[in-house]
Design a protein around this nucleic acid. Structure first.
Lengths: 214, 214, 214, 214
DNA sequence: GATGAATGAGGTTTCATTCAT
DNA sequence: TATGAATGAAACCTCATTCAT
């Protein structure tokens, strides 16, 4: 059907724009990435781009929302796992983060950008709310796992919010730091390995029993 | 003496500009902070600002350099401590980071900004080099402590670079995350406490013996 | 075809800008000619101008490059003339200079401006090199003619560089002087006539035989 | 006497400023030479400079006026020479030009600058008139010599204005051209020699008899 | 008389966004 | 629906000139 074709085309084009934006922002930073750059990168004109996204911030936030949606699907699934201890769930959570980051490498940048700039200015309330809520949901999962782990006596007794905050800080911080190092010296990319070790160390540090896997 | 007065005036004015810039960037983000905002904030015209800083990026980088210089003095001192084990030194390092951050709250933002934007564009080579070198020196101290700790058998055997990378990621990540939370809800500011706990957990996780202090 | 139309449009607009710039600089001088003046003169906004020229100096240098390219074509052709003595070739060279100047009256201004300001600051290395090289090529032609004339015994024996330097000084100097006079009193414009006489006098002065044409 | 001392001081300071301005403009061009540069160059402050010159253009024009006054004294003297033929007088005129230029190397730049920019904007009517009148007087001397030479049958019959225009163009043009060459390659400075040859060639070209001196 | 920080007006340049074609 | 030139609103930055000290 013609209309289906159209919709697919439109949707593909949208994806194309997002990919281009993602790649360029990743390389040059948000402010250094111009609308015209993005358009040119996929043989489009600035005007055409505005048929798909209301403005630059809306395009940017769409990247974040997409990543957060995928991430949510992945972490939501972890909650439901049975026969899995909290420690493994945290590691699964970390893997979900990492996998989503692999597919949407802009995810961390977006999150940090939002933190640095205190939000995204020119987006609809809906988009802003969606980001806030998804964030909350995603963090809530982590919180739940820590609560569970503490209840089960696996983790030392502590406010689970503290644990979840540390986890998020650790993830974003390590990604950011390793990205920066990889940017300077692209050959030595130990991102995944460092990330894994950081989580193992942290988990080991809050566990009531020594983890053999370390 | 007149000339002394003048020098103090000039130096004070420079500090004033840096303070205003720091406060505004902290509140609104780097790009959203306009030269005119900074100037107005201290009852000055934009032009006057350029007597003290060659351009916006140079002003910005001066904030980072100042913080890094102070930070370096503090961490350099840690290296020389005797009768102090590696674990305590890491905690001292973290405290140095936190204290410097308390005085120069923009420090973390700057570091992250530089990582996000891939450097600062309009600064002199000297300024850029200074930042790079100070950074290297500061990280080198951390690296040394970890090497020492591993050697002494206090920390599990691992590439010390991994440990130092995790530390930096952890510090920046936690600060950033807690800042963002405090921004949304200024009353609940658990930054220091969460940071302390994160380091203790991490240290505990990599220690060969359980740390009693946790 | 649409694209052809577009290209012509773009190219025409570029020409329009150059014409406006040329006219205004001729009237008011380079520094007194503002980007906004040029834009207004052709019902454009300053910003639109930057789609065609990277900056003011690049626009300015484009005027010079265009003139030098045309000039080169004209003088290069003279070299190849057979059955033409060196004296006639010099006169042909002078005519080429004058004709190009007639079409690009900014040519002399540009050359002199470059000499006064010691170059053009904000242009790409390519543009700067192009100017330097074209200049060299154009002067080289004149040099060759003088070498030839000296060899043929038409001109008194002398370093041909001296002759060519004098010619260039003479041309630019007379144009500049007559332009200034015409500026004060537009009615009495003897530029062409004075230029012709100056070259005849100079050629007569360096010839081994009296030139009947004077 | 105290007041005499003061006046001398003031006068010396003024000279100092003029010298600094001259040197800097010569090196960097008029627009690239900032008031603060000039002041710093002689350990002065911008404010102090304005005690001696009403504004930048007034300072600039003072340089021109001083040179023109000296030049006038020198060429006026030539008119009164007896037992000197017109040809020698022209050469003396050229020497006066060159000598003045040697002492006030900005002279040619100023003249050309005025021609390029169509005058000097921010100067008093008196200053502007002084420049115009001195110029006229100086040119008048040259004109007289040519009239005399034509009358005496030394120079070919021609409108003497044409001859004087060519002379001025030749002088300024050759100086400008050679300055530009010397700027690129300071070692090969043939300014004086080329200038002399240019005048000899020109004079020979308009003479009714061959000049032996060439 | 000197100082030099500050002004203020104006310049160049940038770019997200629009809109006639 | 796509085009891409143009807009327009700011931003950064410059510097001759002033003026309180």
């Amino acid at each position: 059907m013609k209309s289906t074709q159209r919709i697919r085309d439109k949707s593909q084009r949208k994806q194309q724009i997002q990919d281009a934006a993602s790649a360029l922002i990743l390389k040059k930073g948000y402010n250094a990435t111009k609308i015209e750059d993005i358009a040119k990168h996929i043989d489009l004109t600035p005007g055409a781009l505005y048929r798909h996204f209301k403005n630059k911030d809306e395009l940017f936030s769409s990247l974040l929302i997409e990543a957060l949606d995928i991430l949510y699907q992945r972490v939501a699934h972890i909650q439901k796992l049975v026969d899995t201890d909290a420690t493994s769930k945290i590691l699964a959570y970390k893997n979900a983060l990492y996998e989503t980051y692999s597919e949407y490498p802009l995810m961390v940048r977006c999150i940090v950008h939002v933190q640095l700039e205190g939000g995204i200015s020119n987006i609809s309330k809906e988009a802003a709310d969606k980001i806030t809520n998804r964030n909350r949901e995603i963090v809530a999962v982590l919180l739940n796992i820590f609560e569970e782990g503490i209840e089960q006596g696996l983790f030392r007794s502590e406010n689970p919010v503290v644990y979840s905050d540390i986890c998020w800080g650790l993830f974003n911080g390590v990604i950011l730091w390793e990205e920066a190092k990889a940017h300077v010296n692209p050959k030595n990319n130990f991102l995944k390995s460092t990330l894994d070790k950081s989580f193992l160390a942290f988990l080991n540090g809050i566990s009531t029993q020594s983890l053999h896997s370390i």
